[in-house]
Write a protein that binds this DNA or RNA. Structure first.
Lengths: 216, 216, 216, 216
DNA sequence: CATGAATGAGAGTTCATTCAT
DNA sequence: TATGAATGAACTCTCATTCAT
């Protein structure tokens, strides 16, 4: 049975904005508030057009207060990446441990991946440009992204091996699938008439069956 | 017989860097040099990490000299977008006027679009974030991008109508195709073992035939 | 008995230059220091020849520190105008509420106005060119200046009505009076042999009695 | 008999803008065109808000062309001052050689001075801020302005001596008169219902007779 | 005589970050 | 813990001025 993604997200978006209202409160909550607020503004305007003041203003705190929770601006950014990656990686591990054909795993990937990247940190992961990061941070993120890609290739390769998937250029197929799903981020609106899951299902159909009509 | 895309681009990349060697030289060449140099650095580092000084330094001119050819930094950026868009739009018009099934047109789209976005301004078009642009410029670019999408949908819809394409959610299919092709920008290297055309052909195959193996 | 205007201004000019000595100090004092320092340099060199660095250097702070107290350079300039205008407007209101002939009010105007425009923000008000301001700021200042003019005309008109002043072109008379007093700014030195009040008295005499000798 | 000031100025304002239309033309004419165009923009926007490009654009020439007629921007500015001063000085010399009482000379001064400063370079002379000039130029202009003031004082002193003028503080009286007339620049519109001469006459009346009504 | 190109110097402004409280 | 103040470094953009043509 399918659960609408809207149900899962407990906290209202404005909840984070009140994290600093009380004098005493769990510092983790506050850190979380900074992170989510930053995420939101990063997504709206982009990293470079977001100043720490924008974030502080939205949280109604002062700029230096942010430095209690993060060492610098980039760390906030990097953390957003990490969250996005972590969630996808969990899913990947689950899929991997499933028994089933490669094709089924690819289908699952599309489902789960689509579900992630239409939400907060997942959206971030896809939309944000990792050239914004510097040095080691950039390397880390790219390594993780590559790892995701390799997992997908693994599933496809398995499909080719178990004959559930047509023989093909695995690398290219992986990018096609990922690219097609990623495009969701650009146009999919969570409040539209279709849920992310429904869209993912359709997408899986399109990608596995292809466009061509074969019944004639 | 297919011609490698590397053959077409006449000027060596370093040619632009010498455009400012002579005091007198046709200004269009210099404008072009600024544009291509900017393009390159924008692609390497991103817009906000690129300062006008970076561009000027690479061209061995001074910063204000750039202002002879462009009104401001954003104009350079916007022009990069426009170039990318223009080339794609030309191709689209050609495809549109072809006779052939919708499926064939989609195939052509993949071919031509892939060829564009693996080169200079095409790469830019896909990789750069249009949130960087402000106001009218952003609106213009988004309008154009949407127009490209609509063309693709038109082809797909035609395919559905002429029964060359399976009935499907046209909007979603269009995004899948575009998304899959766009992913080339991230990983395709023009100097690799495959040409963009070869990759595009494979991609078209994957997308039209689907992943699933049907012969059994 | 008359009190010299020099007695009133408590703070020595150099006091402002020390406002930034302590890290903690009431921010109003610092804002005031910026304003007065700016005023002084504006008067010496003019607005456009004054850079924010000039102001910062004099205060021994850095340029961006100024932005803690003012949004931009023009705001400082505008505030100088506002101060000058405000002080004159207070005086005008007082005069207005006096009982007395129109001629007496004009005399009072000359006294008070002269006293204002020979001091800090009053000097500024007269000497500075409001074309320097842009848009709304310019409009605001001009409106206020016009208001001052209208008050003066009102006094003169009242004088004509109550027969204390010769029938005359009121508008022109108002400008003459204001113009004559304004000229103080150009030549009057507060440390000279006459106080501003003495000069104002003489000026009132000249303007009300005229130059011509009538006793013969 | 009075001559309207509008009759005297032969060339239409736009005439200067065509001085550069012909290939060959008297260089003095062109220099004059630059000067008058600069004057106009200086008066509209002020010196610092006027760039050489503004002037060049209006004349439809290029910026460096201006350097054929003037060494630098300030020279243009200075020349505007000089013109304004020169015209006033001519008038002063004429008045000086008249026979008549001091009061009559003051009246004449008001007439002639008013007429000058309501026109082109005269307006400039009064409105522009000589702090804009640097070094020697500033000194020169100030010397000339002082000279004008001294002439006026001379007339007044003569009037006091010949008993046509009430005994008074001569310096102060001179500034009053000049200040009152100068104020014309701020509000007098050449196309209004009164000519400059009519206004000057009224002004002379006001200043010589005073505001007070003495017939009772 | 006139131009297009180029420059050096400097302007105002922004912002991540740190310090002292 | 959190703040207001301050800074240094950077950026875009402007402009008077000078060359070379």
């Amino acid at each position: 049975m399918r659960v609408s993604i809207e149900k899962r997200k407990a906290a209202k978006p404005s909840a984070h904005l009140k994290a600093f209202a009380d004098r005493r409160r769990d510092p983790d909550t506050k850190r979380e508030a900074v992170l989510h607020t930053a995420l939101q503004i990063f997504m709206e305007r982009g990293y470079w057009q977001t100043s720490l003041n924008d974030i502080a203003d939205k949280l109604k705190i002062t700029k230096p207060a942010i430095y209690h929770y993060f060492h610098n601006k980039e760390e906030i950014y990097l953390e957003c990446y990490r969250r996005g990656i972590a969630r996808v990686e969990e899913d990947l591990e689950q899929i991997r441990q499933h028994r089933g054909t490669g094709l089924e795993k690819v289908g699952e990937f599309i489902q789960k991946y689509a579900s992630q990247i239409t939400r907060d940190f997942g959206r971030f992961l896809v939309r944000q440009d990792d050239r914004d990061l510097s040095g080691t941070a950039k390397a880390e993120v790219r390594r993780c992204k590559r790892s995701i890609d390799h997992h997908l290739r693994e599933f496809i390769q398995q499909g080719v091996d178990d004959a559930s998937i047509r023989p093909c250029n695995v690398k290219l197929a992986a990018f096609s699938v990922a690219g097609a799903v990623n495009s969701l981020v650009v146009w999919f609106l969570p409040n539209g008439d279709l849920t992310a899951e429904q869209v993912a299902a359709e997408l899986a159909q399109t990608l596995t069956q292809g466009l061509v009509r074969k019944d004639r």
